[in-house]
Design a protein around this nucleic acid. Structure first.
Length: 218
DNA sequence: CACCAGGCAAGTA
DNA sequence: TACTTGCATGGT
């Protein structure tokens, strides 16, 4: 599946951000949200010169919410960002580099303890900001794998992650590209409302040959 | 108009 | 434990 996606789409060059801090902020902002909307929120923060831990962590919650408004769920996400900032400030004295320089399992556990950071957000931070080999599962991963008969539809986050990590090489660069490619494929072919696109580069994988409806290429 | 987007936590029975 | 609901803007 990876080879087919890479041959079709090429390198995705993820995560689209300039710093680990920007990646982590983006990971929270993109929860159940189109990336285009997140870009607007990030642009607002950049324009105000606030896209740093020092600046953002002392911002009042109402003010923070105002900047990230385009990303949707802005009130709850402002609180989630502050919960994350509190961990870095209180446990790591505001030193993000030091925080990220821990074993993946420890990092993951600490991130999951933050209210508002769940499995996907935590793993995105571990893989893309800390650059440690962990596979990020998302709705596209679940949808694409289940529709191709690789996993049962009822598989949850950790079951999917375990299957991938137990059977494929644990490599940061590979997991980075694979997740990004699955998202790309999901955006363009494996839409929720179109179970069978037929033009997906994965058509036929897993013995699934009945993806016969059309959905259009890029 | 309806539906979707790179989730998560809280509420209900 | 297993569903359901709230959160919200912006694009198609």
């Amino acid at each position: 599946m990876y080879n087919r996606l890479y041959d079709h789409f090429g390198s995705q060059d993820w995560w689209p951000a300039d710093t680990p801090f920007e990646i982590m902020v983006g990971a929270i902002l993109t929860q159940n949200t189109n990336w285009q909307n997140v870009e607007k929120a990030i642009a607002n923060l950049k324009a105000a010169g606030l896209l740093s831990f020092a600046a953002m962590s002392i911002l009042p919650v109402e003010e923070l919410a105002g900047y990230i408004r385009p990303a949707g769920y802005y009130n709850i996400k402002a609180v989630r960002l502050q919960n994350f900032f509190a961990l870095i400030e209180q446990q790591w004295d505001g030193d993000l580099e030091y925080f990220l320089d821990q074993p993946a399992a420890v990092l993951r556990e600490q991130l999951l303890s933050v209210k508002g950071i769940g499995p996907e957000t935590a793993d995105s931070m571990v893989l893309y900001a800390a650059e440690k080999p962990i596979f990020v599962v998302d709705t596209y991963t679940h949808r694409i794998l289940s529709r191709h008969g690789i996993i049962p539809e009822e598989y949850g986050y950790f079951e999917i992650q375990e299957l991938i990590m137990d059977n494929l090489e644990e490599d940061t660069r590979f997991f980075n590209e694979y997740h990004a490619l699955l998202v790309r494929a999901g955006k363009h072919f494996c839409k929720k409302s179109k179970p069978k696109c037929g033009q997906c580069p994965l058509s036929g994988v897993g013995g699934i040959t009945d993806c016969t409806q059309t959905n259009g290429y890029d």
